[in-house]
């Protein structure tokens, strides 16, 4: 099961980087939208409940809520992810606004066109 997660992490990250290497800031923003998923899936893999390791026939671990089952999973990775989700939402919101404004002021979102502005003069 961690293998599935690892593949997901790899694919999402690869797509994000691929989009970041593209030409349009809009596409880059879309890549960023996915970026946090990769991080979160990577962290959730650290909670290592047995079913996720693929141990067949073992009792499923329960959610980290007391009284739900005999063996709750490790709650810390979940807490970390929650924090990270909120933060990435905040960054995302700001970034989108910035891109809107950039598009408006610079009339282009082409990374190469933007690079031509304000280059240090020799």
């Amino acid at each position: 099961m961690t293998l599935i997660l690892a593949v997901c992490v790899a694919v999402i990250l690869a797509v994000c980087i691929y989009l970041m290497l593209g030409r349009e800031l809009k596409e880059v923003a879309m890549g960023v939208f996915l970026l946090s998923h990769a991080a979160h899936l990577s962290i959730i893999a650290m909670s290592r409940s047995p079913v996720l390791s693929g141990a067949e026939g073992h009792d499923l671990k329960s959610a980290p809520i007391l009284g739900m089952g005999s063996q709750p999973v490790d709650a810390l990775p979940q807490a970390l992810i929650l924090t990270s989700i909120v933060i990435s939402f905040a960054v995302m919101g700001f970034l989108l606004t910035l891109i809107v404004l950039t598009g408006r002021r610079a009339t282009t979102l082409n990374v190469d066109d933007l690079a031509k502005e304000q280059l240090p003069t020799p």
Partner: peptide, 15 residues
């Protein structure tokens, strides 16, 4: 390459 790197690290640490 980036994807494989990170995926591999996830796999490694989780196990």
């Amino acid at each position: 390459a980036v994807g494989i790197t990170m995926g591999w690290m996830t796999l490694l640490a989780a196990n």
